[in-house]
Design a protein around this nucleic acid. Structure first.
Lengths: 143, 143
DNA sequence: TTATTACCCTAGTAATCCTATAGGGATTAA
DNA sequence: TTAATCCCTATAGGATTACTAGGGTAATAA
């Protein structure tokens, strides 16, 4: 299950990406619009800033803004920053790999091969979707 | 991330499915072979039995055995019993649906549409794999 | 019947993660 | 200077995880 942190983070990023002008968006505005605890959201946006996904401007009229074009921000990157590994097991993770303590051989492990397939399918979906797709309502709904 | 419970449960099921004869397999044998805490495994196998995936025979020479043909047991079912919902958010779950408290409209929610795609891709993989596939080492490796 | 084997069940617990809340410090525009 | 805003740390209650402990119950072989 996705944590609330990740869910709120994605919603906030999409909110910022929807902005037509380039002006920074305040935490309080996002919190109000998306029904998120203000303080909690603050910590999430800070994390996204430190990860290089957002820029911030302090002081009156400040706020958070996107550094890159939303079309260039893949959802794989967003999920990894907020939630951590996309794989469901450390032994099938690309970026957070860990060997299992049990399991003498991954190649013959039944769980490993199954979860590899799940990971690849998730990677494809998340790699095909950018923040721009989310902000525009999703690329797959073409009717 | 998959819980150890789920991981151990899958490994145990695959171990039982690998058996050529129909004789029950003892908990202690599986625990030893798959490096799983005996008592913990006991609780997992019990859960699988109560969910209708395994049968059990008591007494000397007893143990757990599969009720159905491994080819008929989809991994979707196994995961749902052990881990719970396959979806990463309650609002995109088929079997465990819950509305979000925030989020006035799911149709326009950016997270919802993304996670729907992830869920569908996971469902496809898990639906295409049966316990028989796991026991035989995976259907996709044909070289 | 008796001993053995193995399933069945209940409780508890240390560690970790989640979801915030609280309180302030630093920076900037006006 | 003043108000708005981001920045940072600490902490706390609750839930979940991953077991462990300790037995009870049922079936079987001898």
């Amino acid at each position: 299950m996705l944590s609330k942190k990740t869910k709120y983070g994605i919603k906030a990023l999409a909110y910022i990406a929807k902005q037509t002008d380039k002006k920074p968006v305040q935490t309080s505005e996002i919190a109000k619009s998306e029904m998120i605890s203000h303080k909690f959201l603050e910590s999430i946006l800070l994390l996204l800033k430190n990860a290089g996904l957002l820029g911030a401007k302090k002081g009156k009229g400040g706020g958070y803004y996107l550094i890159k074009d939303p079309a260039e921000i893949k959802m794989t990157q967003v999920i990894r920053v907020l939630e951590g590994p996309i794989a469901m097991l450390p032994c099938v993770s690309l970026n957070y790999y860990e060997k299992c303590e049990d399991c003498p051989d991954e190649k013959t492990c039944s769980v490993n091969s199954l979860m590899l397939q799940v990971r690849d399918s998730a990677l494809k979906v998340l790699g095909d979707n950018s923040l721009a797709d989310l902000a525009s309502g999703g690329k797959l709904f073409t009717d």
